[in-house]
Design a protein around this nucleic acid. Structure first.
Lengths: 148, 148
DNA sequence: AATCGACGGTTACACTTGCAACCATCTCGA
DNA sequence: TCGAGATGGTTGCAAGTGTAACCGTCGATT
């Protein structure tokens, strides 16, 4: 059966398979220690590294749907890892920032992530990750340009 | 605030963001035309390109959980795009293959995928996709080795 | 032949998710 | 100043998902 199309070299497929695999692999590292979903961890990371953001900013930054962000933020707040601060001039907006406990958690997980990536870098050889990420950046750029 | 960890260069995050983006982008191409979920499309593609597989084989091939495969297969069968053929010597196993209608659908979507990838290749430059996929393969290899 | 564990596949249940509809607030123009 | 539309954020609902428990079948050991 002659076949012009090979699933194995179809980029969306390959990208998803790799992403799911690595996601699973890393989540094993923190799911147990901290009881946290991936959107929560993303929001935490965004806030931890940037400092203070609105929900919308978190969404665009990490490409998460606003309902996902909303729920993640609610969960982090529930856990007292984050607090909302209202905007003076626009009362729709809420500035979000980590509490002391939130920053502590962030540092711990960031540390975990750091060593995880280091292990990976060692297994793949120097520069490999940078090359992959450069490729991913190109893909994202192309797709976002296409969207218009 | 000195920060040893940068989310933006954390591979699991980057991989997931890119994967979600491209998935969304491509699904827009077929979600409307065919009413099909991603697992169904994956199963269809696997069967279409390989010819005949068992559910377990589809699962390992495309890294899908067996319940996902089970449901996708049931849906495709419901639509009469696939039929099950029982194994002579082991009655637990079912060989799955596409019906004529299923093959027709497969060819259409494969075509869509093909032109999609061609557009992407043009936007990214020759060889870019191959390079990315080679990198992904390395990552997957490293992760699967780690798992043991 | 009876038993035990492994395996292919399905199902029940709880949880996560995306979409659409929604509320409150803001902005802009008539 | 009023109304129409845009925007930040939340929620109801339907659909998708993973975990675990399950059913039937197989292979090996006894």
């Amino acid at each position: 059966m002659p076949d012009a199309f090979d699933l194995e070299s179809f980029l969306p497929y390959r990208l998803n398979r790799a992403a799911e695999l690595i996601s699973l692999s890393f989540s094993r590292e923190y799911k147990q220690r901290f009881q946290m979903t991936r959107p929560e961890w993303r929001a935490l990371a965004a806030l931890g590294s940037v400092g203070s953001m609105t929900a919308t900013e978190i969404g665009t930054h990490s490409n998460m749907h606003k309902t996902k962000v909303s729920r993640a933020v609610a969960a982090l707040e529930e856990r007292r890892w984050l607090k909302r601060r209202e905007n003076e001039t626009d009362r729709r907006v809420e500035h979000l920032e980590l509490t002391a406990a939130g920053q502590k958690a962030y540092r711990e997980i960031a540390d975990l992530a750091h060593t995880y990536q280091a292990t990976l870098e060692k297994a793949l050889g120097t520069g490999a990750i940078e090359r992959i990420e450069a490729g991913l950046a190109d893909v994202e750029r192309a797709l976002l340009a296409k969207r218009r």
